[in-house]
Simulated assay, not measured.
Amino acid sequence: MTTALITGATAGIGAAFARRLARDGHNLVLVARDTERLERQAAELHDHHGVEAAVLSADLATEEGIAACEERLADRRHPVEMLVNNAGFGLKGSFPDVPIADELRMLRVHCEAVLRMTTAAVGPMRSRGRGGIVNVASVAAFVPRGTYGASKAWVVQFSQGAARDLAGSGVRIMALCPGFVRTEFHQRAGMGTSDIPGWMWLDADRVVDAGLRDLARGKSLSVPDPRYKALLGATKLVPRGVLGGVSSRAGRKYGPKRDS
């Protein structure tokens, strides 16, 4: 069996990746901060799918958390053939109202952790001549949205550049850019979502299915819904300032978000 490592694995898109990859027969390394929840999730996936699911409790906003994941990814005795960099969060408010410490923590999780973990995974993957890496970004990467959008734009640019550099190596890298995804987060945080049109909501399992199809096709960018593809096409015709204003209002209402 092959092994997949997933960050932010206990909820939302990360949990959907865990379910799908377990169903496909992959052993798993599940990464998040909540050890108790990780262990419960690992037991459920093992019982339902018969795969081995290891738990790695790590906070990717810390040096120790990132280093622990790097060490696991670099272990050539127990290779990881699939890496899903999914951990991430949003911040309530707009610049400069958000504390700089929170902004820096976001950059560490969204950018530094993705860079370092992708680097740790690529070495062993290249030596075996195969492997896949999915870096979860967002459609916010394509509109002005403060540090969140900027960090996701970095994920997209980094992933596409790395995919080009690794062409022909057998290692595939892709940025996954969903829009609003229905998860438990909004209900747990008590956030109102009534102003978001129903058509903008996506199902996490369908997002994952579409993303894995695009990865298998060799794409370096996946926008997993035709409605969002059309919306992004329209961004070329709409002034970026207008898009940024809409995005910022959504961020103030629907942040903060943390899934790491």
Rank of each mutant, 00 (worst) to 15 (best):
G190Q: 02
D195H: 08
T35L: 10
A87V: 09
L231Y: 11
S138K: 08
V156S: 07
V55H: 03
H186W: 12
R19H: 14
C111A: 12
R19M: 00
L56K: 01
L83E: 07
K253P: 02
L107P: 01
E71R: 13
R72M: 06
D225M: 06
G132V: 02
R108S: 06
G211E: 11
P239D: 13
F180D: 14
A22Q: 04
G129Y: 08
T2K: 15
G146Q: 02
A18F: 02
D214W: 04
F180A: 15
G131P: 10
S260K: 04
V122K: 02
A140T: 15
G93C: 01
G90H: 12
L115S: 12
D102K: 13
D165C: 06
A137N: 09
A11L: 04
V207P: 13
L56G: 04
R213K: 12
G65L: 07
L176H: 01
T183H: 05
G146C: 04
R145W: 09
F89R: 11
A121R: 01
G129K: 10
V84W: 05
T119D: 15
A32S: 15
L45A: 07
R188W: 03
S248C: 07
L28N: 05
W154K: 00
L56A: 00
V109R: 07
R72L: 12
L107G: 13
D47N: 10
A15H: 10
D209W: 00
R77L: 10
H46C: 10
R76P: 00
G132Y: 07
C69I: 15
F95V: 14
K257E: 13
R227Y: 09
D75E: 00
G14E: 08
C177V: 11
R240V: 03
A68Y: 01
G241K: 07
R130I: 00
A43E: 15
S159E: 06
L60K: 12
G255A: 08
A175M: 05
R40E: 13
A58I: 00
G93M: 05
S138F: 01
Y254C: 03
M117D: 08
F185Y: 13
V114I: 08
R19C: 03
G218C: 13
Y228V: 12
A230S: 14
V181R: 08
T10Y: 07
A210K: 06
L104D: 08
C69G: 10
R37P: 04
G131M: 08
G12R: 09
V223P: 05
V98C: 12
A137G: 14
